[in-house]
Nucleic acid binder design. Sequence first.
DNA 1: CGCTAATTTTACCAGCTGGTCAAATCAACG
DNA 2: CGTTGATTTGACCAGCTGGTAAAATTAGCG
Lengths: 206, 206
Amino acid sequence: MTKTETRIQKKNQAAILAAGLKVFSQYGFRGSTLDQIAKEAGLSKPNLIYYFASKDLIYKALLDRLLENWMEPIYQIDATGDPVEELIGYARRKLTMSQNYPAESRLFANEIIQGAPQIGDALRGELRRVVKKTASTIDAWVAAGRIQPVNPYHLIFSIWSITQHYADFDVQVKAVMGPEDPFPSAQDYLENMLRRMLTASPGASG
Amino acid sequence: MTKTETRIQKKNQAAILAAGLKVFSQYGFRGSTLDQIAKEAGLSKPNLIYYFASKDLIYKALLDRLLENWMEPIYQIDATGDPVEELIGYARRKLTMSQNYPAESRLFANEIIQGAPQIGDALRGELRRVVKKTASTIDAWVAAGRIQPVNPYHLIFSIWSITQHYADFDVQVKAVMGPEDPFPSAQDYLENMLRRMLTASPGASG
DNA sequence: CGCTAATTTTACCAGCTGGTCAAATCAACG
DNA sequence: CGTTGATTTGACCAGCTGGTAAAATTAGCG
């Protein structure tokens, strides 16, 4: 009764979501058209509307799916693990996501720049909560003297911004660096940065 | 002969550019409409077209003006100055720009995410050149043992991404941190990060 | 095969979009 | 105050936009 999904439905819904991701991530919600998405998906416009009743619904479906994947890496931080390695691991997972899902990263960026009309609630709810919890973990690590004093919120923001930069600003990265793949050296840089930031420094105490 | 700009022209062109900035920075080029911009500028659409013959021209005028301002801070890095202070100063200038010109930052972000159709040439030309020069400066500082070894390209990217994050992802920053102004603590964080990254570490030699 | 429900297509629409054109109004200079 | 050029407006348009309705086609099942 519940499993009414046909083979064709699955195929076409997947094609539409893939097409929507490609188009929305580049042009944003308002800059994208159903014709564009339909063409990209290899369907006629009314046929597309047969699967998703409106442009809005495609967009919402994409963002729902995205939000889960996007927040997952932060949940994997283990408060009982080694602080430096946990944070480096987190940064590595985020960077890998930028590398493997650049369109998703740009979709997210577009939504936020536009003012987060769809996912604002999730940001102020679940995201805020998990970041707060992670910040507590980091603060505890600092209090225990296991890492250098650091503002946990800005530490997290800097991990987000650096890792997403390679997806969102990909064109600029390539313009500046040339065709060379930036990800391997970016990973080294990030790891290095976090290690130096978090590891006890020599003389200075404050 | 050349100075044919009337008082009204100046006023209306400025109003159109301000309106265009506001609208384009939020919705991107394709997601923005002339009606929206005209309304925001307090003009009728034909009147707007009287000053800028097309939507494209408004957008191009904005990006031209933006590019200059955007690159200026990097030109101020002084190869003969103190390395750590020069780089911290650069980061501070970029952060201040994000704080004072968030719409400009988002306009730039939108243009890049969209694939930089307008400013791609400038990125591959002037930007690439000045970054290359700055990278040489940083490499020289490393070679002279004045800062820790670091990949200069990724160092620059990380300064760009972190500073712009507070403008582009402003909604997310506020969602996570609450209404508190993030800029003062962000500046502390950034300075701290750069200082720890660039300053000689204790034991390890490599 | 023959039937039914799922899928696809064709034709269409109202409102928006970027932009035009000519007429009307206004500013400012002599 | 009149005239000339700058500015503004109202009416308009072709093509695009999100979406509809109904007919035509196809898939899958017995």
